[in-house]
Design a protein around this nucleic acid. Structure first.
Length: 255
DNA sequence: TCTGGGGTCCTAGGACCC
DNA sequence: TCTGGGGTCCTAGGACCC
């Protein structure tokens, strides 16, 4: 349905999307009204829409009036609109970053915008520091992405009861490997890396990974690598969760 | 708030090569 | 032989998003 408006749609999860309506002849308000109408008609659900010059601001805007909202952030006065909002309103600022900023006396986006770039890069690393600096100013030049290739595929499962039963863990790991192998094979991918994840009953989490000699979608090969990874972890506590993930996905050349 | 499952991206250290 | 710098790959862990 969204594509009737523009082909530039980025799928952002099961119930979110970004639309680039730069070249749509309707006004943003008209687009929003039509979308709300159609969504209500077809699903009986409301939705919240944010309209802004970029994705970051559109996302923030969409969150500003939650159910059934429509919020527009225009080119002018962006920093003034953002300044009073809590830093947590920035998508990409989670509980950890919020807490760290809090210790620095930074609670709002306006306060964040007062910090120099080098301070943020020093404290948060190159990418995240720069991201925070730009986000505080409402800057975001990332495009609406209409298509991308998957980078990894995984399966994980939490045991009904924490377990120390190694055979059970191995059986589960094999089953998960089977599911992952089948899925990538069916989707026409081969994987170059395999990693496993183990979470203990106290939530302590460890991963082990291995890069293969060549990409594969073979269950046996992926399972073997997963087992080898597990062998490099000492299971000294009961296990709550086990997972397998394959990465370095490449399109299979066969057919 | 927690703590289920599927993802992405980043960082840091070490190995290795030129 | 020693020293150094830069680049890339691998691995483990963590933050964050839906």
């Amino acid at each position: 349905m969204l594509k009737e408006t523009t082909a530039l749609v980025e799928d952002a999860g099961i119930d979110e999307a970004y639309l680039d309506i730069t070249d749509v002849s309707l006004t943003a308000q008209e687009v929003a009204a039509r979308m709300k109408h159609r969504i209500r008609e077809e699903t009986a659900l409301t939705c919240s829409i944010g309209i802004a010059p970029n994705k970051l601001l559109a996302k923030i805007a969409s969150d500003m009036q939650k159910p059934d909202g429509l919020t527009i952030i225009s080119e002018t006065g962006i920093e003034e609109r953002l300044a009073p909002l809590p830093v947590r309103k920035i998508p990409g600022v989670g509980p950890v970053t919020e807490e760290r900023l809090g210790h620095m006396g930074i609670a709002t986006i306006g306060q964040l915008a007062s910090l120099p770039l080098d301070r943020l890069v020093h404290d948060f690393g190159h990418a995240h520091g720069r991201f925070l600096y730009e986000a505080a100013r409402g800057q975001d030049d990332t495009p609406v992405i209409t298509h991308w290739e998957p980078k990894s595929r995984g399966r994980e499962i939490t045991f009904q009861e924490d377990t120390g039963d190694r055979q059970k863990i191995l059986r589960t790991l094999a089953a998960l490997s089977r599911e992952v192998a089948d899925e990538i094979a069916q989707q026409g991918y081969q994987a170059l890396t395999v990693s496993i994840k183990v979470r203990f009953s106290d939530f302590e989490t460890h991963t082990r990974g291995k890069t293969l000699d060549e990409a594969t979608d073979s269950y046996e090969a992926l399972k073997r690598a997963a087992f080898e990874c597990l062998g490099r972890l000492e299971l000294y506590k009961k296990v709550r969760l086990i997972g397998v993930r394959v990465g370095g996905l490449q399109k299979s050349e066969t057919q």
